[in-house]
Amino acid sequence: MSEEFEIKNKVAASGLINFDLTDLVPKGARKGIDLKDFLFMEMILKEKDFREKVAAIDTEEYKDAYVYIYNSADAIVPLWAYFLLTAKLTDATKKIVFGSAENLEIVLMHDAIKNYDFSEMNGKRVLVKGCTDKAIPENAYVELVENLKPIVKSLMFGEACSNVPIVKN
């Protein structure tokens, strides 16, 4: 094939770094624990009963999982209950948070971004992928920009064929 008809990948030749936030999503099971299941009549925390139910938890069920603890009952739960439940599970799980499954994903992405080495993007043109097959919390994009803005030459969002310029340094 002659050079005048050669197909060239201009995106690859541009030095543009394509960054997909889904690559940072931690792999592993997500499991929720509803405190109402530990309450008497799903309303009242009786310390002795609560301690027995926590002690009876099979931690293997939560091995290497990401766990979120929530309370769907309209009940006041003392803070020590969260301490007790977390102490039981912490050696088996990868991470435990209080809140919803969505809160868990926000925390996981925060940790992933905080621990990611962005040095390869220093002084480079970076395109953050816009369309993903996994749900990414909006806060992850906010934190990503906080980390990338000071170090990149330019930051864009979207796809190579259609992107939105965000920052030019």
Rank of each mutant, 00 (worst) to 15 (best):
K94M: 12
K94A: 09
K94Y: 14
K94R: 15
K94D: 11
K95L: 13
I96V: 14
I96C: 04
I96N: 04
V97M: 02
V97L: 03
F98T: 12
F98Y: 11
F98V: 14
G99A: 05
G99P: 00
S100R: 10
S100Q: 05
A101E: 15
A101I: 07
A101S: 14
A101F: 03
A101W: 11
A101T: 10
E102F: 04
E102N: 02
E102S: 09
N103A: 12
N103D: 14
L104S: 01
L104F: 02
E105I: 00
E105M: 14
E105F: 01
E105H: 08
I106T: 11
I106Y: 07
I106L: 06
V107F: 03
V107Q: 05
V107N: 02
V107I: 10
M109P: 06
H110R: 15
H110C: 13
H110W: 11
D111H: 08
D111A: 04
D111W: 02
A112T: 08
A112F: 13
I113K: 09
I113Y: 04
I113Q: 06
I113V: 13
K114C: 00
K114T: 05
K114D: 13
K114W: 00
K114M: 12
N115I: 04
N115A: 15
N115Q: 11
Y116R: 14
Y116N: 12
Y116I: 10
Y116K: 15
D117G: 13
D117Q: 05
F118T: 06
F118C: 09
S119R: 09
S119K: 09
E120Y: 11
E120R: 13
E120A: 10
M121L: 11
M121H: 01
M121E: 00
N122S: 14
N122W: 05
N122H: 14
N122D: 14
N122G: 10
N122A: 15
G123P: 06
G123T: 07
G123S: 06
G123R: 07
K124G: 05
K124F: 05
K124T: 02
K124P: 06
K124Q: 13
R125E: 11
R125G: 02
R125F: 01
V126L: 08
V126Q: 05
L127W: 06
